[in-house]
Simulated scan of single mutants.
Amino acid sequence: MSTLGPVVGYRPGTVDLHSPGLPAACRGRIWERSRLEWHARDGGDPLQLLSDFAASHGVPLDDISGSPSVIDSSTCGIAVLLSPPSVIPSPAPAVPDFVAVAFEHGREHRPARVSGPPSTVGNWTPSWRPSEHAAAVEEVRSAISRGDVYVVNLVGHTSAPFAGDPAPALARVAALPGARYGGVLRGETWWLATASPETLVEVSGGRVVTRPIKGTRPATAAGRADLLGSAKERAEHVMIVDLERNDLARVAAVGSVQVEELFAIRRWSGLWQAESTVSARLAPGVGLAGLLGAVWPGGSVTGAPKLAAIDVATRLEPVGRGPSMGACGWIGHDRDGRLAIDLGLTIRTAAIAEGRVHLWAGGGIVWDSDPEAEVAEAAAKTAPIKAALRG
Rank of each mutant, 00 (worst) to 15 (best):
R110K: 12
S279I: 11
H57A: 05
G363I: 12
H57F: 07
L227W: 02
S300R: 10
P130D: 08
P212V: 09
A160W: 00
L61Y: 06
K386R: 15
A340T: 09
W190H: 00
H157R: 04
R113G: 15
K381H: 09
H18E: 09
F98C: 14
S19K: 02
G147L: 01
A308H: 03
W31F: 09
D165G: 04
G116E: 10
G9Y: 14
G303Y: 00
S83M: 13
R29M: 06
P23H: 04
P6I: 03
G270S: 14
P23E: 01
R113E: 15
P85L: 08
G337M: 05
G164Y: 14
V8S: 11
G182Y: 02
V254A: 13
D63E: 08
A40G: 10
I144D: 06
L49T: 12
G223R: 01
R129G: 15
R146G: 01
R390C: 11
S73E: 10
G290P: 03
R35S: 11
L228S: 03
A102N: 03
P126Q: 07
G66H: 07
T349L: 01
V70A: 00
E372A: 15
G178N: 00
M1L: 07
I341A: 13
H333I: 07
K381D: 13
P323K: 02
R11G: 06
V286S: 04
Q48F: 15
P12V: 02
V15G: 15
V259P: 05
